[in-house]
Nucleic acid binder design. Structure first.
Lengths: 338, 338
DNA sequence: TTGAAAGCGCTACCAT
DNA sequence: ATGGTAGCGCTTTCAA
């Protein structure tokens, strides 16, 4: 019970006006005399009338909703992403549909299905096929977040490669470290792929031998713990562990500390993202700051405007800057006192 | 471009039948002759027709969507929650709207607004006021997840109190520990409140002096790091740190390890949730297993059925069992070899 | 079995 | 400034 919604027609009848006038009043469109407006408002108040979304959406041929597709992994990264996206959507009065693909096979069709219920979709890089992305883009505005899509599909991402090269160079040059291990699957996500590329580039720049193949694990903290297990048991343990993100770096940190190793004296660890916790742990995590929230917000904005303006404002890509954050886990003396 | 949807009428015209027949075919309802069906299906295939959601929803007076309201914190707990909820929703062909309240003031009105776009809402305990919950429930089916709502609003939650009492008793009796510190804000969420109650109960049962007031911090990993900082600097450091969840326990673990303390020899740490990583760290985290995913799935199921059946199947509360998981961080010898 | 037509709740155009 | 009315795309009686 309780769901006996009152309609425009009811209000119109009650206020002794036409439905058109009620619509005008409740939308603030067109011209309405003070007297009429008062009568209508009165009836609206009296019955707690709120225009039905479905009726409105059908008439406007617009859902008032946007979709967010992500793999469904945990961690501060995804939470920031969701929040950044969501906050921009509520500001635009749009609701947010989410779809966790879990990297499943049938996610392509699920994404396409989602497209029928929203005005635009943001897809995290690496979660659905380029083919699906293309089909999607033929139906609704699409933006690839943290990755690049096929031609014609715009993207919003952060600068990964150069930042990782800079970080790696810091380890190689400033700290004179060799035998760096990279943790993360380059083929798992565009972000990791670029970071791995940056890692390699630093070695190449300095004419050092190619680094070992990456330790292909996921991006979650437990993967970092696993990485520590493998890396720190192997006889020639690496001098530094360069992680694809902060989550795994924290996992490696826990693993190393748990084995009684000292960081950075016995082993150096670095991350990527600059999650809130990374500044708090000791030693503070050396990492790269990425504006995750802003990335997501920008994505939401682009989708929202694209679904409003019919003018296809060219698929212009956005690349947000990142920033190397030196703390203590790389071997530098602690500089910041939080 | 590309959004020139084809309608029932088009298909009907193309197939030389009425819209009613097209509708019957695309929904598999009613009786349609083989010949008609073939003609319709052909037209549908040929033009890739898919019935519009808005039209369908308006006619059915049903959104085909459910809402999930949560504070928007990070961590495996929320991710599991979202995933459990979402997987059950996709199975029912419903989409999921999310709303991160961030524990803001205006979240009540946002939740009410969401109610106008979905067929039912799941609200995480402690995110909106009871008053809002009541209003919400008068519009759509509502279930409180991990908490209890006002009378008339059903809830789905896990057994917290007894489990925490058992865990605390284990520390107090088996390990003979005293001076246990509790980390978490009882007034922050129903879950924490119950866990704190269980913690106190164990002390009372054993006629021990009341424990110190809880260290009121959030539920994220960084809060655990903060907790370690405060707790382990104080002169009489506690013998054990009982955390409201695994996230904070992990934070405390990192903090303790980072200060060169040994766990459990120098300090005992326990959590709650049994996150995936908790079995992996060393020492393995002693905690309480909570079926988070199942909690969310059950919540989704109840909302979905409630929004289908008009029969108000009484607000029956669900309480899922929890289980004490003894590992090594409490001082017990490591038993499981993962 | 099939089709015509009446909505679902709202907006917007076109007269008045 | 106001009201009648024609849709938006679909489902579902009700007749035929």
């Amino acid at each position: 019970m309780g769901n006996s919604r009152i309609t425009v027609r009811e209000i119109a009848r009650l206020a002794g006006v036409s439905v058109a006038t009620v619509s005008r009043v409740s939308n603030g469109t067109g011209q309405v005399s003070a007297e009429m407006r008062r009568r209508v408002l009165e009836a609206i108040e009296a019955h707690g009338y709120r225009p039905d979304h479905l009726g409105r959406a059908l008439a406007a041929r617009k859902h008032g909703a946007v979709g967010l597709v992500f793999p469904g992994l945990s961690g501060p990264y995804f939470t920031e992403l969701i929040q950044g996206f969501e906050s921009e959507a509520v500001r635009a009065q749009a609701s947010v549909h989410i779809l966790c693909t879990h990297l499943r096979e049938d996610s392509d069709s699920q994404v396409l299905e989602m497209a029928r219920r929203v005005d635009g979709v943001a897809v995290l890089g690496g979660t659905v096929s380029d083919e699906a992305l293309r089909q999607l883009a033929s139906r609704v505005p699409v933006v690839v977040l943290a990755g690049v899509g096929p031609a014609g599909v715009p993207s919003v991402r952060a600068e990964n490669t150069a930042a990782m090269t800079e970080l790696t160079r810091h380890l190689l040059v400033e700290h004179g470290l060799r035998r760096l291990a990279f943790v993360g699957s380059p083929d798992g996500s565009p972000d990791v792929s670029e970071r791995w590329a940056g890692f390699q580039a630093a070695h190449r720049e300095l004419s050092l031998p190619d680094p070992d193949a990456p330790l292909r694990l996921g991006l979650q903290q437990q993967d970092g713990v696993l990485a520590a297990e493998r890396l720190l048991s192997g006889q020639p343990a690496p001098e530094a562990v360069v992680c694809a993100n902060d989550e795994t770096a924290l996992g490696v940190l826990v693993g190393a500390l748990g084995r009684g190793l000292r960081v950075p004296q016995d082993i150096v660890i670095t991350g990527f993202d600059d999650a809130p916790i990374s500044a708090l742990v000791s030693p503070g995590l050396t990492t790269v700051r990425q504006p995750v929230r802003e990335l997501a917000a920008e994505t939401a904005r682009r989708i929202l405007t694209a679904s409003d303006d019919p003018i296809d404002g060219g698929p212009e890509d956005v690349l947000l800057p990142t920033e190397l954050v030196i703390r203590h886990s790389c071997g530098c003396p602690a500089t910041d006192n939080p």
